[in-house]
């Protein structure tokens, strides 16, 4: 009886999940032209509980994307523009001394822009390592410690950090250990001519986002919880583990591509992220199990910022995505 009840409830949740995804996409499309892969990946990351590093030239709609998401998800949004002079307290907030009405001096914690659900950390690589660390700590721990007090972030908490690939002068590239904290790295490409026309037409009258709230924070958390229960067969798990292990050239069984083109490979966090995101993706596509295809598609955003390619790859005109493709191919071949 209890099982039947649980089943009925979960069936309802599954239906709700599908509807929520559909609604979110519909709302985002009101404000963002094209970039469907980016939108799907951001939704996946939000539901999976991860953060995204977005690489894209200025003006492609990164801020608009996050603002639109905040409206659709009914979640408070905050944009932090990182500059070289930005201090950690500028991000997290700080204690200030204020005189109250009675003239007494009190210490009050003024929350920083980090205290929101959806954060756009723009050009994070322009901030100093210290400020980056403060930001990344919040991303990892979902709390801020100021003095003796720890302030917890409200869930769902999602950070979309950006890097400008053009202006590299005077920047502080994120170290690899920090990069590992991002679930995905997405590349936002310049829109096509048709998409560009649509963007211009859409924003001629107003630049305001048109998305409306369709889900809320608790719903996102429910969706996150539901996705955790999507079954994964051992063969897919094994395939995923082999893929991550194969990114390491020092591993004896790693394929030729890893030994030739990779300097160092992905961390175990990559395997965790792959499976977590694959479950979400499966549900988003109306499936109730994780498939090889889910892993193959998610391999690129999960691994591209975690694998460091060597000079051989550069010499052979291979980018990191090309190397990931080779690793996928050879992992598939070995698994048969």
């Amino acid at each position: 009886m209890e099982d039947k009840q649980n089943l009925t409830e979960d069936l309802e949740k599954v239906k709700k999940f599908s509807k929520a995804i559909s609604d979110i996409k519909q709302e985002i499309r009101k404000d963002v032209v094209g970039q469907e892969e980016i939108v799907d990946s951001v939704i996946t990351a939000i539901i999976a509980g991860g953060n995204v590093l977005l690489e894209g030239v200025p003006g492609v709609g990164k801020t608009r994307l996050v603002r639109s998401f905040s409206k659709a998800l009914s979640l408070p949004f905050s944009r932090i523009q990182f500059t070289p002079d930005l201090m950690p307290s500028d991000v997290t907030g700080t204690n200030v001394i204020e005189k109250d009405a009675e003239g007494k001096m009190n210490t009050i914690f003024r929350r920083g822009p980090i205290f929101a659900n959806l954060i756009l950390a723009d050009e994070i690589n322009r901030a100093t390592p210290k400020t980056q660390s403060a930001m990344l700590e919040v991303m990892q721990e979902h709390n801020v410690t100021v003095g003796d007090t720890t302030y917890k972030m409200q869930e769902p908490f999602f950070v979309l950090a950006t890097e400008n690939p053009i202006e590299q002068d005077g920047t502080y590239p994120l170290p690899e250990a920090q990069m590992d904290r991002f679930m995905f790295k997405l590349i936002m490409k310049f829109p096509s001519v048709e998409e560009l026309a649509d963007i211009v037409n859409m924003t001629q009258i107003t630049m305001a986002e048109n998305a409306t709230a369709v889900v809320d924070g608790p719903t996102i958390l429910e969706m996150r919880e539901l996705a955790k229960h999507v079954p994964v067969i051992d063969e897919v798990l094994s395939y995923t583990m082999n893929l991550v292990a194969n990114t390491h050239p020092e591993v004896e069984s790693s394929p030729e591509a890893a030994k030739k083109y990779v300097r160092y490979g992905a961390s175990p966090r990559a395997a965790q992220n792959l499976i977590t995101c694959a479950k979400v993706r499966a549900l988003m596509n109306g499936n109730y199990n994780v498939s090889y295809e889910d892993i193959d598609v998610l391999a690129y955003p999960v691994l591209r910022h975690r694998i460091k390619i060597n000079y051989n790859a550069v010499n052979d005109h291979l980018g990191v995505d090309d190397v990931i493709s080779l690793l996928l191919k050879q992992t598939k071949k070995n698994s048969k």
């Binding site: 069936l11 539901l226 999507v230 067969i233």
Partner: peptide, 16 residues
């Protein structure tokens, strides 16, 4: 992998 999942979890009573 739907059928493989079906076979692998054929005895599971988990709602999902």
């Amino acid at each position: 992998e739907k059928v493989q999942t079906l076979v692998a979890f054929s005895s599971s009573n988990e709602p999902m």
